[in-house]
C-alpha cells in the first residue's frame, strides 16, 4: 500500500484532457464510420410497405379483443378489407366463401419475430388443409422501430402466405379489432368469426385454430 507521503500527486487537468481526447476521438470515428456506411448501404425499398386500405361499405368493424372478457366478435361477419400485398398485387381479405386464419404481424415486434419462423417451420411438416387459407396483414409499420422493411423480414424467414400491407393509419388492424401482436382471427367459410387470439401461441394452438376454421367450432 502506498503511504500518503509516497502517494503520487494527482494531475487533475490531465485526467480531464485525456477523457476529452477520448470522447473527441470517438466522435470523429462515429462521423467517419457512419458516413462510410451510409455510402455503402442502400436503404432503398423496392415496393411500398404500407398501402391504402379500403373497407367494404357493408362491413362492420369487429370490436377490440379485450383480455379476460368474452369475445363479442364471435359470430360476427369479418369486414372486407381491400388493398395491396407487399409485392404490389391487389388483395382482399373478407367473407369470400373460404375458411381462413388471418395473422396480423408487426415487423418490429419481437413476439412476431419469434412466432412467424415457428409457423414457417410447422407448415413444412403440417401444411394448411385444403379449403383453409392462411392470410397475413403486415401492420403498424414504423421504419425507425427496426427490422424494416417487413417484406425483407418475411422473405428472409420464408413466409409464403399472402401478405396485405396495412395502411399508415392501420385501417385493416382497426377493422379487425387488433389490440396487440401477433393477432390471429379465425373465420369459417361463411365469414363468421370463430375465435380470436393474441400473443405468441404454440403450434398445438395454431393447429387448433386451423381446425376451428375448418369446422367452424371454437377450440374448447
Amino acid at each position: 500500500m502506498t503511504s500518503p507521503e509516497n502517494a503520487p500527486a494527482s494531475r487533475g487537468p490531465v485526467v480531464w484532457y485525456a477523457a476529452l481526447a477520448v470522447v473527441m476521438l470517438l466522435g470523429v470515428v462515429a462521423v467517419v464510420a457512419a458516413r462510410s456506411s451510409s455510402n455503402t448501404v442502400s436503404n432503398k425499398v423496392a415496393t411500398a410497405q404500407t398501402s391504402k386500405v379500403k373497407t367494404g361499405s357493408s362491413s362492420k368493424a369487429l370490436p377490440q379483443l379485450m383480455d379476460g372478457k368474452a369475445d363479442a366478435a364471435i359470430g360476427q361477419i369479418i369486414p372486407a378489407v381491400s388493398g395491396k400485398t407487399l409485392d404490389g398485387d391487389a388483395i382482399t381479405i373478407g367473407p369470400d366463401g373460404t375458411s381462413k386464419v388471418v395473422v396480423f404481424v408487426a415487423h418490429w415486434c419481437p413476439h412476431c419475430q419469434a412466432e412467424v419462423p415457428k409457423i414457417v417451420g410447422h407448415l413444412k411438416d403440417s401444411p394448411m388443409p385444403v379449403g383453409v387459407k392462411l392470410l397475413t396483414v403486415s401492420t403498424n409499420v414504423v421504419k425507425e422501430r427496426g427490422n424494416y422493411p417487413p417484406k425483407a423480414w418475411l422473405d428472409r424467414v420464408g413466409w409464403t402466405a399472402p401478405v396485405m400491407a396495412d395502411s399508415t393509419d392501420n385501417a385493416a388492424a382497426t377493422a379487425y379489432g387488433l389490440t396487440s401482436f401477433p393477432y390471429f382471427v379465425v373465420a369459417d367459410a361463411e365469414g363468421k368469426v370463430v375465435t380470436r387470439v393474441t400473443g405468441e401461441i404454440s403450434m398445438d394452438t395454431f393447429d387448433q385454430l386451423v381446425k376451428a376454421a375448418e369446422t367452424g367450432k371454437a377450440p374448447s
Binding site: 415486434c109 419481437p110 388492424a173 396487440s180 400473443g199
Partner: peptide
C-alpha cells in the same frame, strides 16, 4: 426483456413495448 420478451408479456403492445429494440 429485450432478449426474452416473454418475461414481460406474450404479445406486443402496439404503442411501445419494453421488448422493442430501437437500436442495436
Amino acid at each position: 426483456v429485450e432478449r426474452y420478451p416473454n418475461l414481460e408479456t406474450s404479445s406486443c403492445d402496439p404503442a411501445n413495448p419494453c421488448s422493442l429494440i430501437w437500436v442495436e
